[in-house]
Design a protein around this nucleic acid. Structure first.
Lengths: 142, 142
DNA sequence: CTACCTGCAAATTATTTGCCTTAAC
DNA sequence: GTTAAGGCAAATAATTTGCAGGTAG
């Protein structure tokens, strides 16, 4: 599957007359190996080990590339920092965020999604994407 | 109702050994008179008319106060700017955001909320707040 | 009079950009 | 060889903070 994801990025890159570089490969590598919900700073630290000369700006630029190519999705939990999660052949899911320990539980509920579509239709609204975040206390922190 | 909201703020202020100032009153006034979803900058511009000496920092500080006292709620539509909406004796609602014209449609769907509670319970998670934002195209822009 | 509050400017934080050098293709 | 990419430092943008003087209680 990692192979597939490399392909996705390389296809995107060649289709847009861009170039495959060792920095881009390193960021992709680190992103694929990372847990969900990494920040640019997180990735920068990880990549810096193998690629000490890399600049934070390059990480940001590569993350845009990953997002545009469909490999990554941006998250914003309202703490002033963007996170990124795997988005390739991953089903859509939403998040429960524990405000105590920071743990993030993912879930997917088709019925909720269906109701969203219903509400949207009632308003003549066509949903492109949506985001459902529930903040609270997880079972380990209660 | 505006009277009630003034009381809420004044109670909060006196209970916390804070002071009622004309700046705070002016920001509250502007906030109450404002449309939903104002940014700090929006309010600053409005308040500046009546109170030309006010500083942007004061608006930010007062908005925190309004949020803490329960009159305002922070919103974040991911465009790098916080918005504020009325939160006092207003029912919870979610948002549909038109990515074309920027219009925001509010809605409330008890069944969706119930399902959220159900999902949370399955995970031993206790919801404090939640946020459901649907991005897409509104009926006027289709 | 004693905090707290204000305005202002400077600091912070996350992210973006400009620019010149370097490396893909 | 072109042309895009990278590194670095400077620029943004929204928000926060420090401080010295002002004001509410």
């Amino acid at each position: 599957m990692a192979a597939k994801e490399h392909e996705v990025l390389e296809n995107y890159i060649t289709q847009h007359n861009l170039k495959i570089t060792k920095q881009r490969r390193a960021v992709l590598e680190a992103f694929l190996a990372s847990e969900e919900h990494v920040s640019a700073e997180d990735l920068y630290k990880i990549v810096s080990v193998k690629e000490p000369k890399i600049g934070l700006a390059t990480v940001y630029r590569t993350l845009s590339l990953l997002t545009e190519s469909g490999l990554a999705a941006e998250l914003d939990f309202g703490d002033g920092q963007k996170r990124y999660e795997h988005n390739y052949e991953h089903d859509h899911h939403d998040h429960m965020i524990c405000t105590q320990c920071g743990k993030i539980i993912e879930f997917h509920n088709p019925l909720i999604e269906k109701l969203q579509e219903d509400v949207a239709r009632e308003h003549g609204f066509e949903i492109t994407t949506h985001k459902l975040d529930m903040f609270g206390i997880c079972k380990d922190c209660r």
